[in-house]
């Protein structure tokens, strides 16, 4: 071993890296830079950025019932819910205002986990940078609402599981309702 031979070997490693970066593909050890605004890495299904609210069909038909559980569970307290009321002041099962401050949200996904009505889910949208924090990053109900089709599109597996669960629950409910509505003729007569 002569003095400096290790250095020369190391130099050839970097030289090889330099030369091969011009023609090798990323998975073969070439350039791994993805030039972001033009090219993107496809997002994984379980990627999560900020919460949004799901509606079925039309935006009026939203799943949220303004139960306030997500707002109470939210660790940084970025969710603010106001329950709607009819003209008599009786509370309705939908929100009058639903606001999430995205600049406070820490993307933990706790709201999605606790929601008993499968209404709030984490989105894939992450390019929300803006000049005005207070006007642009405080998302109100109209900006938060997204269709179930969109949810199916970005997270097919989760969305299908949720849809299946909801369908089953619906059928069960219908069955129960039908059972309740039927007159009790089928009941075997009580033994006298």
């Amino acid at each position: 071993m002569i003095f400096g031979s290790g250095i020369i070997r190391g130099m050839f490693v970097t030289l090889k890296n330099f030369a091969t970066s011009y023609f090798r593909k990323p998975d073969e050890g070439g350039l791994f830079t993805v030039e972001y605004p033009e090219k993107r890495i496809p997002l994984k299904e379980r990627f999560r950025s900020f919460p949004f609210l799901v509606y079925d069909g039309t935006p009026e038909n939203l799943r949220c019932t303004a139960c306030d559980i997500c707002a109470r569970e939210c660790p940084p307290k970025c969710i603010y819910v106001v329950r709607a009321a009819d003209q008599d002041g009786r509370p309705l099962r939908r929100p009058a205002a639903f606001t999430i401050d995205y600049s406070v949200c820490m993307n933990c996904g706790m709201c999605e986990e606790v929601c008993p009505f499968d209404s709030i889910f984490m989105d894939h949208e992450f390019e929300i940078a803006s000049q005005d924090r207070y006007r642009e990053l405080v998302y109100t109900l109209t900006k938060l609402l997204k269709s179930n089709e969109y949810f199916n599109n970005i997270r097919p597996r989760d969305a299908q599981a949720v849809d299946k669960k909801r369908r089953e629950a619906e059928e069960k409910k219908k069955l129960a309702a039908a059972q309740a509505a039927k007159p009790k003729l089928d009941e075997p007569p009580k033994p006298v």
Binding site: T14, F18, F32, T33
Partner: peptide, 13 residues
């Protein structure tokens, strides 16, 4: 540019 290529990056472009 050169150091970027050595580290498999593109460098300023």
């Amino acid at each position: 540019k050169v150091v970027g290529r050595i580290q498999n990056r593109i460098g300023p472009n």
